[in-house]
Computed example of a mutant assay.
Amino acid sequence: MYLAHFGLGQLPFGLTPNTGFFFGLEPHVEALEVLQVALESGEGFIKVTGEVGTGKTLVCRKLLNSLPKQYQSAYLPNPYLTPDELRWALACELGLKCQTGLDQRQLTFWITKRLLSLSLQGQQVVLVVDEAQALPDDSLEALRLLTNLESEQRKLIQLVLFGQPELDERLQTHQFRQLRQRISFSYCLRPLEWDEVQAYINHRLAIAGYQGADLFSVKDIKTLTQAARGIPRLINILAHKSLLLCYSQGEANVLSRHCIAAIADTQDTQDTQLPLRGSNLGNSTVGWRIGLVVALLMGCALVSAQAWGYWL
C-alpha cells in the first residue's frame, strides 16, 4: 500500500487493538488509574464503559499486560455464555483440569478451592470480562455470586467489566440492583478532543516509522475529529483512507480533499457539510470512490510485483 511512500515500517491505523501503539490519552490513562486503585483496594466489582470504538479493548489489554506479579488474571473476551459455561471458562482460566462430568455444585467447589489456594500463595485473582453488555441475565447474576467467595480478609476474586453503554442501562433496572450496589469503582471513556486526535495520529505515525513533518494539517485534524465524533476507531479508518488517497495521487501531504473523500466513503461518520473543494478527483459523485479503488489496486499491484520478483 502506502508504506514505502511515507517511509513506514507498518500500517499505523490498524483496527486491531495493539498495545504497541498505546498512547497516553487522558481518558485511557484515567481509566487505567481507576482500575489500578480499585484493584489495590480489593474491591469486588469494577466497571469501565464507553461508546463503540472508544478504546475499551485496548485499555483492557493494557491492564492485563501491566498487572503486577501478585495478580493472576482470567480473561473472557466472549462473554455470551450461560452460567454453566461461565464457570467452566473460569475453571479453565484458573488452570483447573476438572472432569467434564462434574455438576455445577462440584465445579464451584473446585473453583473455590483453587481461589483459596492462590490466596494463600499471595495471589489475587482478577476476572476481566470484555464486551460485558453481551452477558445473559443469568450469567450476570452468576458473576455477582462469584464475588461472595471471600476469606476473612478479602475477596477471593475481583471482577472487571468492560462494556458498551447498554451495560449501564441494564444495570439501572430493578433486576440488577444488588449487582449495581456492588460496583464501587466505575469509569466512562469519553470521545477525544481535536488536539488529542492530533497527538494520537502523530504518535501512531511515529510508532509506524514516519519521521517527516506532520502529514495532516490542524484544519483537517479538526474535520476528521468532527466527522468521527472523537471516536478512535473511526479516526483510524478515516486516517487510513486519507493516506490511501494521498498515496494514489502521489502527494507528499494529506490534503483536505483526501479527508473529505474518506469521510464520504465511511459509514457512521458525522456529516461535516464540507464540499470537495478543488478536488482533482472530478466532479462525479463517484470520483472519490474511484480514487480509493485506484489506491487499493496500486497497493495490490505493488505486492504482486514484489512477490513475482521474489519468485524469479
Results as ranks from 00 to 15, higher is better:
residue 2 Y to V: 06
residue 11 L to C: 08
residue 11 L to S: 08
residue 12 P to C: 11
residue 16 T to M: 06
residue 18 N to D: 12
residue 23 F to R: 10
residue 26 E to I: 12
residue 28 H to L: 13
residue 33 E to S: 15
residue 34 V to I: 11
residue 38 A to M: 05
residue 42 G to D: 06
residue 59 V to S: 00
residue 71 Y to Q: 03
residue 71 Y to M: 02
residue 72 Q to C: 07
residue 72 Q to S: 09
residue 83 P to D: 02
residue 84 D to E: 14
residue 91 A to W: 03
residue 93 E to I: 01
residue 99 Q to F: 07
residue 101 G to Y: 03
residue 103 D to A: 07
residue 106 Q to D: 10
residue 106 Q to I: 04
residue 114 R to C: 06
residue 116 L to S: 12
residue 116 L to V: 15
residue 123 Q to W: 00
residue 125 V to C: 04
residue 125 V to N: 03
residue 142 A to L: 10
residue 151 S to Y: 10
residue 153 Q to G: 02
residue 159 L to M: 07
residue 164 Q to R: 09
residue 167 L to K: 12
residue 167 L to N: 08
residue 168 D to T: 12
residue 172 Q to R: 15
residue 172 Q to G: 12
residue 174 H to M: 09
residue 176 F to M: 11
residue 177 R to M: 09
residue 179 L to C: 11
residue 204 R to L: 02
residue 205 L to A: 05
residue 207 I to W: 02
residue 208 A to K: 03
residue 209 G to T: 09
residue 210 Y to S: 08
residue 213 A to R: 14
residue 215 L to V: 01
residue 220 D to P: 07
residue 222 K to G: 05
residue 223 T to N: 05
residue 224 L to P: 03
residue 226 Q to R: 10
residue 231 I to R: 02
residue 232 P to M: 00
residue 233 R to F: 11
residue 235 I to P: 05
residue 240 H to N: 09
residue 250 G to S: 05
residue 256 S to Q: 13
residue 261 A to V: 02
residue 261 A to T: 00
residue 272 T to F: 09
residue 272 T to M: 14
residue 276 L to Q: 09
residue 278 G to T: 12
residue 280 N to R: 13
residue 286 V to C: 06
residue 289 R to F: 12
residue 289 R to S: 12
residue 290 I to A: 12
residue 294 V to W: 00
residue 298 M to W: 01
residue 300 C to N: 09
residue 300 C to T: 11
residue 303 V to A: 15
residue 308 W to N: 05
residue 311 W to Y: 10
